[in-house]
Amino acid sequence: MIVTMILNGKKITDEIAADMTLFDFVRKHGCYSVKCGCETTNCGLCTVFLDDTPVLSCAMLAARAEGRRVETLEGLQKEAEEFGSFIADQGAEQCGFCNPGMIMNAIALFRENPEPTDEEIKQYLAGNLCRCSGYEGQLRGMHAFIEYKKNGGAACGK
């Protein structure tokens, strides 16, 4: 079957097997930030945006993205770098494996709610697996990023 979608701003048309996942499709097209850690929708490592909504690409058929817009971390470099530096400053990227999914979901959260509470952050990121840091560093990094944004992008203690 032939599928066409916009991947990180570029129109891609490709012949795929009917059972190809969106995860396999984006990886085939060079989006290596997208990882698959569980294949059971429990880790969040495969998160991509489908028309601006975070989805787990390991659980979605590529054919379902026909005619739609898919974004990965590679397509969100400016937002990812800006936020990712706050995570790094808190030592929350020990192995780095969870970072792409965590950053994708954090970007989605901040787009939806620029000033989330701790409970909202925890709820939004509940599906992201991080085995190294216990999430405290990510939470501190998110708070620092929120303050940075409140100050109009001016560094505060950074």
Rank of each mutant, 00 (worst) to 15 (best):
G153P: 10
M5S: 06
L76G: 03
A62P: 08
S33H: 06
K78P: 02
E82V: 13
K150L: 13
A154H: 12
M60V: 05
G37S: 03
A108E: 06
A65T: 04
H29W: 10
D51Q: 02
M104W: 01
Y148C: 02
E112L: 01
I6N: 12
D51L: 14
L139I: 14
K28I: 01
E120F: 00
F23L: 15
L73H: 07
F83K: 04
A92N: 07
E39K: 09
G75L: 07
F23W: 14
E66S: 12
D24H: 08
A126T: 03
L61A: 05
P100Q: 02
L50W: 05
S57M: 00
M5E: 10
M5V: 07
A106L: 15
C31D: 12
S33A: 14
L125E: 10
Q94N: 03
T47I: 04
D118E: 15
V48T: 06
K11S: 11
N113H: 13
L73V: 12
A59H: 08
M60R: 12
E120Q: 14
T72G: 01
M5Q: 04
R140K: 15
E79M: 02
G153T: 08
E81M: 07
V48M: 12
M60W: 02
F145W: 10
A106K: 02
Y32G: 08
P100L: 13
